[in-house]
């Protein structure tokens, strides 16, 4: 399992770094949105570019943040049954879920969103609104986000299999499922 766990550590580090970008997107979108309102009111100036950049950043929060959220095991579950299982059973649920639920769906989405981005890129697709932004950067977030999620899915799968085989991974693995850390 050595190389696999090394891979897992690398993915965790990558998504931790990418998650920081998503954090910054929260602060930026908030500052820009409040700034938009104040500037428009104060000097009657605004532009669609500044309106659109808000939801570009929103896209970044979601697509760049989802994989780190998975690393922290904070995607919400219905734990009616899961909550009453022992740790090994929970690990098995996760192994099953990553293989049959999560990875197929996210791989498919990653694969399908790539041409969606490429078309926008080659055509230099812009905004239909006066002064709006080029569309490819926000469309690129989709395949990037889904690929990062797939990588994190593999990482989580590896760590859980290691735990099931009695190997305690040197990588951080959050098997406990509870509220976001304070």
């Amino acid at each position: 399992m050595g190389p696999l766990l090394a891979f897992s550590r690398a993915v965790d580090a990558l998504n931790t770094a990418v998650g920081k970008l998503a954090d910054w997107a929260v602060l930026l979108s908030c500052a820009i949105s409040a700034g938009n309102a104040i500037v428009r009111y104060g000097v009657s100036y605004s532009s669609n570019a500044w309106l659109e950049v808000q939801w570009y950043l929103f896209g970044a929060i979601v697509m760049l943040g989802a994989s780190y959220t998975l690393f922290r095991n904070e995607h919400v579950r219905v734990d009616l049954v899961y909550g009453n299982l022992g740790e090994r059973a929970r690990l098995w649920v996760d192994v099953f879920g990553f293989i049959f639920f999560m990875l197929p769906a996210m791989l498919l989405l990653a694969w399908m969103t790539w041409p969606f981005f490429v078309d926008s890129w080659v055509r230099h697709e812009g905004s239909p609104n006066a002064g709006g932004l080029l569309r490819w950067p926000v469309k690129l977030l989709l395949p990037v986000g889904f690929v990062l999620l797939c990588l994190q899915g593999f990482s989580e799968l590896i760590k859980r299999i290691a735990l099931l085989r009695g190997i305690h991974p040197t990588a951080e693995v959050v098997v406990e499922y509870h509220r976001p850390e304070q």
Partner: peptide
């Protein structure tokens, strides 16, 4: 106001706002 008309009006000082 969206689209092409937004671009026209922008030339005349209008602030198109696609909220």
């Amino acid at each position: 106001i969206g689209g092409f008309a937004g671009n026209v009006l922008q030339k005349l000082g209008v602030v198109p706002q696609q909220i």
